[in-house]
Amino acid sequence: MVSSGMKPDVKAYRVVFVNEYCKIRKPSEAVLLLWEMMVRGVKPSMSSFNAVFRVLVDEGKLDKGVLLLKQMPKMGCPPNFLFYCIVICGLCKVKGRMQQVEELISNMLQNGHNLDATMYNCLLAGYCEDGDEEMTPKTVMT
Rank of each mutant, 00 (worst) to 15 (best):
R25M: 01
C85F: 03
V16A: 07
I88Q: 06
M72Q: 10
L123R: 04
V10I: 09
Y13L: 14
G131D: 05
M135Q: 12
R25S: 05
G5I: 01
S3D: 13
Y120C: 10
V10Q: 08
M6E: 09
M38G: 11
I24F: 01
V2M: 06
V42A: 01
E36H: 14
M135R: 13
L69C: 00
K93G: 11
Y84V: 03
Y13E: 13
S4D: 15
E20M: 10
G41H: 05
S48C: 08
G96R: 05
E129H: 12
V42M: 02
N19W: 02
E134I: 14
P79V: 05
K93Q: 13
D116H: 02
G76K: 01
H113G: 06
P78T: 00
S45N: 09
V87S: 07
D130V: 13
V55L: 05
F17I: 13
V55C: 03
A125G: 05
N114H: 09
L33P: 05
V16K: 13
P78S: 00
R25K: 10
K74F: 02
E20D: 15
D132W: 09
K95C: 02
D58Q: 09
R25C: 03
V55Q: 09
K138M: 10
K11W: 11
V57F: 00
W35N: 15
E59S: 10
V39I: 15
V101W: 00
C122K: 03
G5T: 00
G65H: 00
M46F: 07
C22F: 01
R40I: 03
V15L: 14
R97P: 01
T118C: 08
G76N: 06
K70M: 03
V57N: 04
G41N: 06
K64I: 12
G76M: 00
R14C: 12
V66T: 07
Q99M: 08
P73K: 04
P78C: 00
T118N: 09
N50C: 11
R25E: 04
W35Y: 14
P73Y: 02
F49R: 08
L56E: 04
R25A: 04
A117I: 12
V55G: 03
M72F: 06
N19S: 12
M119Y: 04
E29W: 10
N107L: 14
Y84A: 00
H113P: 11
C122P: 06
Y13F: 14
G126M: 07
C122G: 04
Q71V: 02
L67P: 07
T139H: 07
V57H: 06
Y120I: 12
F83K: 08
S106E: 15
S106K: 14
G112Q: 01
V52E: 02
I24C: 09
V94S: 00
I88E: 05
L69P: 03
S4G: 15
Q100A: 04
K43Q: 13
L115D: 01
E20T: 13
C89Y: 02
L67E: 08
M72R: 07
M108N: 12
K64G: 11
S28D: 15
Q99W: 01
L32N: 15
S48G: 11
F17P: 01
A117H: 10
K93S: 14
S47M: 13
V42L: 03
V39A: 14
K61N: 13
E133V: 15
D9W: 05
N107C: 10
D58C: 07
P79D: 00
S106P: 14
E103W: 00
T118Y: 05
